[in-house]
Design a protein around this nucleic acid. Structure first.
Lengths: 208, 208
DNA sequence: GTCTATACATCGATAGAC
DNA sequence: GTCTATCGATGTATAGAC
């Protein structure tokens, strides 16, 4: 039987969790300052009042740190989309969803880079971190489905559209809203195309 | 007056140019193998029969190497789009243009990363290299203009669409054609939206 | 869990001889 | 232009004290 009470375990777990949060926060800061690929573990350790080897109590390697950050970024994304109040009109809800996604990328370019562009040599998310990414895609599919879109080609086209808006916004107008503003038009364009094809394959008066 | 004949200068210049080409070719090979950010100058030097410090006769720093590669990749893109025979139908020409661009990204993920995603910390193209990128955008604008699109918002939307297709293809189906196949539909969707709005603001029978 | 101390391989970069 | 030699910084890793 262990000699520790549940209280002691909880307190230690909380301390550890708090430290992990501090490390993550400082890692993001360094990434913003120097670039994602240029994070230095010695720099990071100094900023969280640890010696460099002590960081290895929180991750196994630098790629492990990226995995923590990947999971963290995906949790931020999930928190954001889940906090959205859902508009009654599914098409309007889709517009707001896209605007939110593009803004999410815009406000943190480095996070967008880590989550949506695989650019760190050797980095692949762990199963646990990737599961968070899949949760997000589930939500996105639900939103599309509510607007009447579930064909896989149409989903692919939609994903390209949203990702393209976010990428162009981040790459060519960071901090601005030149592509964010196009979200509504993009969704309208997409849904109009879906409608057009439904009508084309189901002529007037034909049974559904 | 210089003691060298033009012949001597030309021969040396050619040797140097050939060496530069060899270095570039091996740099791309290394980038494909290890990732763009993981290129090692020692590896590179060994592959071109030089000592590592001798590389600095060809570029000033590692970022300088990326600039050479950026210019090289843009020249490849320009050569490709200029070699395309132009379809008589500007809309059909636009479809072929987009398919070509998405394929261009697909066949070399690393090149796409360097040209269209700014992911190397500290790297910014030099003025000379960036001029090549601008040449490409000029051509793209011409193709769009021929299809009747010149409004800046519409151009932005189009760029997001194409970039999104390329990015999704590269990120989620490298080597495949899941998003390449959507090029025609994407262009149709886009042009239909442009038409729809022209009609909306210029009712039937109204003078142009 | 955190520390000190240390080790190793690798990296980009520079000085100076030829 | 290419070389040798060398520098400082980095990521990674380990041993052992507390």
């Amino acid at each position: 039987m262990a000699s520790e009470t549940n209280n002691q375990v909880d307190r230690r777990g909380r301390r550890r969790e708090a430290k992990r949060a501090t490390i993550l926060a400082e890692a993001w800061r360094l990434a913003h300052r120097d670039g994602l690929a240029a994070i230095s573990l010695r720099d990071l350790a100094e900023r969280v009042d640890l010696r460099q080897p002590s960081l290895y109590a929180y991750f196994d390697s630098k790629l492990g740190l990226y995995d923590l950050m990947f999971a963290d970024g995906n949790r931020q994304l999930l928190d954001l989309v889940r906090s959205l109040s859902l508009n009654d009109n599914p098409r309007e809800a889709l517009v707001e969803f896209v605007e939110t996604l593009v803004r999410f990328s815009t406000v943190d370019v480095v996070r967008h880079q880590l989550l949506f562009q695989r650019t760190i040599p050797g980095f692949e998310p762990s199963a646990g971190s990737y599961a968070l990414a899949l949760e997000f895609y589930d939500i996105a599919h639900q939103r599309l489905s509510a607007a009447g879109v579930s064909d896989s080609g149409e989903v692919d086209l939609f994903s390209a559209l949203v990702n393209g808006l976010a990428h162009q916004q981040v790459a060519n107008d960071p901090g601005g809203d030149r592509w964010v503003r196009l979200s509504r038009r993009a969704v309208d364009m997409f849904l109009a195309d879906v409608d057009r094809r439904r009508q084309g394959s189901a002529p007037k008066g034909a049974p559904q």
